[in-house]
């Protein structure tokens, strides 16, 4: 075991997969330096043909990934910030997810789009998005949102080995988190949620950085309310069974989602829980999401993004 930081775990997964399979390559603007150090040092290890620095050209980066994938390569396209996916939306949201489908299932597209997401760093409305609901609206794209260094590594390795397009979104506010990582190789299959805290009074579903906040809330409420915290880890595929099992046990649900409340993933998950377990619910489901504003820069951020106090309040209210 070694203590690794979240971005170091990502770096290690990339390094191991680049070493394991020569069809894997990485491209993106500044991957040789890497602003969040997720890809730093890889070009020295694998050379500029496997770790390719590109101009600021998201459409070329993502389109390149699609083309190379149809020829048997396994590209990892680094978009730096998940907000930048919109500059390449045609490839990321239309072309990659639909390509296999509309060509009669004859091809597979093993692509990983990787980018840092989320707010809480006061970097404003164009560098703080959590655009997973947009991705989920496009069937054919898997969505991975790791909340710990251990998961970041195991889920990234699974994403790279998956034969489908995967958007792997790590959270910028988790970069400094440290965790023991085994020396030996491990992989975390996509589509398996994790129960982070066991509890009996209320189920809190939260992914990525929201999971970190939800665990803090659960620990704070110890002795007052028994909170079960579930981390979906991947939003597509979604492990609804693990969530429903918990709902049946607790009868009460809070969903914490960093995305904008309106038309977000929280609303979707509420609907799915009601469709499958309405009779198990003892109270209306509550959600804690980003308020329906752009994410402001600077100190106003806290009025839009979900805050720990709101999570505590929602849990207390739903168990009333």
């Amino acid at each position: 075991m070694r203590l690794l930081q979240y971005n170091e775990a990502i770096n290690e997964a990339l390094s191991e997969e680049l070493a394991r399979d020569e069809k894997v390559f990485l491209l993106g603007e500044g991957v040789g330096v890497s602003s969040l150090a997720t890809t730093r040092g890889l070009v020295q290890k694998f050379g500029p043909d496997r770790v390719i620095d590109t101009p600021i050209a998201e459409a070329a980066i993502t389109g390149c990934a699609i083309g190379a994938a149809t020829m048997g390569y396994r590209p990892i396209a680094d978009l730096m910030y998940s907000d930048f996916l919109y500059t390449a939306a045609d490839d990321v949201l239309i072309r990659a997810p639909q390509w296999r489908f509309l060509h009669g299932g004859r091809q597979s597209l093993p692509i990983v789009f990787i980018a840092g997401s989320g707010g809480y760093r006061k970097v404003g409305p164009e560098h703080s998005h959590s655009p997973h609901s947009i991705m989920l609206h496009h069937p054919g794209l898997k969505v991975v949102v790791p909340s710990t260094p251990y998961d970041a590594k195991g889920l990234l390795k699974a994403s790279i080995r998956d034969d489908n397009p995967v958007f792997y979104m790590f959270h910028k506010a988790l970069i400094g988190m440290k965790e023991d990582i085994p020396e030996e190789e491990y992989i975390i299959p996509l589509g398996q949620a994790k129960v982070r805290r066991e509890g009996t009074d209320v189920t809190v579903v939260a992914a990525s950085y929201m999971n970190y906040l939800a665990i803090q809330a659960a620990d704070k409420l110890k002795g007052e309310i028994s909170v079960e915290v579930i981390d979906p880890r991947t939003l597509e595929p979604l492990d609804l069974d693990t969530i429903l099992k918990s709902v049946i046990k607790t009868g009460r649900v809070v969903i914490v989602d960093e995305d904008t409340e309106r038309c977000g993933f929280a609303g979707e998950l509420m609907a799915q829980i009601m469709e499958h377990a309405f009779d198990e619910l003892d109270a209306p489901i509550k959600r804690v999401c980003a308020a329906n504003y752009p994410i402001p820069s600077g100190f106003l951020e806290k009025f839009v993004l979900p805050q720990p106090a709101q999570i505590l309040a929602a849990i207390r209210e739903v168990v009333k």
């Binding site: 070329a60 389109g63 390149c64 083309g67 190379a68 994938a69 149809t70 020829m71 390569y73 490839d91």
Partner: peptide
């Protein structure tokens, strides 16, 4: 224009 970059690189 973008997809052919990937084809060209793979080629």
């Amino acid at each position: 224009f973008t997809v052919s970059v990937g084809w060209g690189l793979a080629a």
